[in-house]
Design a protein around this nucleic acid. Sequence first.
DNA 1: AGAATATATGTCATATTTGACATAGTGTCA
DNA 2: TGACACTATGTCAAATATGACATATATTCT
Lengths: 105, 105
Amino acid sequence: MKKAKRNSLEARGWRVGSVAEFLVLSAEDAALVETKLALSGALRARREAKKLTQQQLAKLLKSSQSRVAKMEAGDPSVSVDLLLKGLFALGANPREVGRALHHAA
Amino acid sequence: MKKAKRNSLEARGWRVGSVAEFLVLSAEDAALVETKLALSGALRARREAKKLTQQQLAKLLKSSQSRVAKMEAGDPSVSVDLLLKGLFALGANPREVGRALHHAA
DNA sequence: AGAATATATGTCATATTTGACATAGTGTCA
DNA sequence: TGACACTATGTCAAATATGACATATATTCT
């Protein structure tokens, strides 16, 4: 995974810029991004499994549809905390989150 | 786990107050707290395994000793993002974090 | 004991994240 | 086609997290 990953990140708003700049995206940052993407994927999967709209999940979270969209898009403005709150609100537990992280990426 | 857990949380600065108030700590909130505690535990374990002081880890993270102390104490002012940054800076990867969550709590 | 080193706690200005809103895009059905 | 439901994207004031600092409390030496 190299150029494909970079494009995927850029598409999601990480604004990495040149390849050179991408290379300074440290391993730590990459791990954090990977983690966030795994969680946003799990969030969308769970929401869809429950046949909820983003609007409905937003209400559950006392948030807004636009923020839920950003959560699922892995937007950089979304914290891991918020993603976890979303997953837990959908009935996940820490063990399941652990499994999701362990398998993903 | 009931009163013991409440005391443990209060001791860590979650200021839960009365038992009645504790009961309104929803399952979602509890799951998030559990997650944070699992991560702070893992952080301390990794730091100590590497024989680093909080000061040294702070430098690595471009943060401060006091914040590292709060990270390891599971202080409510610390985000999951910051805990993950700490773990990744210590060489953990998302899979290992997943394992830690899956086993803990 | 006391000095040295490590960790904990409280506070605060600054930085980042948040919900909310507007609006644009996408898919579906008549 | 157009109306409808859902999702995506941009912006911003308010809320929350952050690093830094001072200082308190352990812990570990001699």
